[in-house]
């Protein structure tokens, strides 16, 4: 049984755009039990100390991708991170790094949403088929080529792990590029050529300097760093081979 008397200090970086020039830290003393996640700690603060504390959450089971935050400087999903693992030390919480802070722990994700759209994150069929012709069949090997990247839950922890995105917000970034790669690797998809313009562009894969922290923090083990680096090779091939292609094709 856990000791019901345990209290952990949680330091939260607060920012209220209506009153604050810049974010500032506030420390809360939160009673906790061993089964409490960091998200539950934050909910406790909202319910008991300050109802204006703002944060995103939904599923509480590491699949919706809403509750990411910097926990002691590391991007993590707060629902699957436990207070007991930090006790008796203080925990510091901050909105996901590199994104603009909207309020408290909520960031502005509109840039990411645009990037996600720009990768054509859907199957562009290689060959058009009518329903009468039946389904697109796929072998387990073909499935194995992309399933790893299909596990992405758009939590954007990888963006908060990416110094290049922090330095250059236009970088398409690890998450969207991993999703792009997921569709390129799908045997039913024929959209790789269409996606190449983005991959090979100045906002594309070459902004990455292979720090590879994105793959380290990904809660779904998607390995975006590998997806980005494979596409550097693809874009390099395209860079030189485009001169050999017949004119008019792209």
């Amino acid at each position: 049984m856990s000791d019901p008397g345990k209290i952990i200090e949680i330091e939260v970086l607060r920012y209220n755009p209506e009153n604050d020039e810049a974010p500032h830290s506030t420390v809360y003393k939160v009673p906790f039990t061993d089964d409490m996640s960091v998200l539950q700690g934050v909910q406790y603060i909202k319910d008991n100390f300050d109802g204006s504390l703002t944060f995103r959450w939904s599923c509480r089971m590491a699949i919706c991708g809403s509750c990411g935050m910097m926990i002691n400087g590391v991007p993590k999903l707060s629902c699957e991170t436990f207070l007991r693992d930090y006790y008796p030390n203080r925990i510091s919480l901050e909105a996901l790094a590199h994104f603009p802070i909207e309020k408290d722990l909520v960031v502005d994700w509109s840039g990411f949403m645009e990037k996600l759209e720009s990768v054509h994150p859907y199957i562009i069929p290689k060959e058009k088929r009518s329903p009468e012709e039946g389904e697109y069949l796929q072998t387990p090997e073909q499935f194995g080529e992309y399933i790893r990247y299909a596990a992405c839950i758009n939590c954007t922890l990888c963006y908060s792990a990416c110094p290049q995105f922090g330095l250059d917000p236009d970088f398409i970034g690890p998450g969207a590029l991993a999703i792009l790669h997921r569709y390129n690797m799908d045997s039913r998809d024929g959209g790789a050529t269409r996606r190449m313009e983005l991959v090979a562009s100045e906002e594309g894969v070459f902004t990455c300097s292979a720090a590879a922290y994105c793959s380290e923090v990904c809660p779904k083990h998607v390995d975006p760093a590998n997806a980005v680096n494979i596409n550097k090779i693809n874009a390099s091939k395209d860079y030189f081979l485009r001169f050999l292609r017949p004119k008019g094709e792209s």
Binding site: L198, A200, S201, F206, Y239
Partner: peptide, 16 residues
């Protein structure tokens, strides 16, 4: 959303 994207010359330097 369609942006005019400029192709990066990085492949030359990246391969080297």
């Amino acid at each position: 959303m369609t942006k005019n994207r400029k192709r990066s010359n990085a492949p030359v330097f990246w391969l080297l």
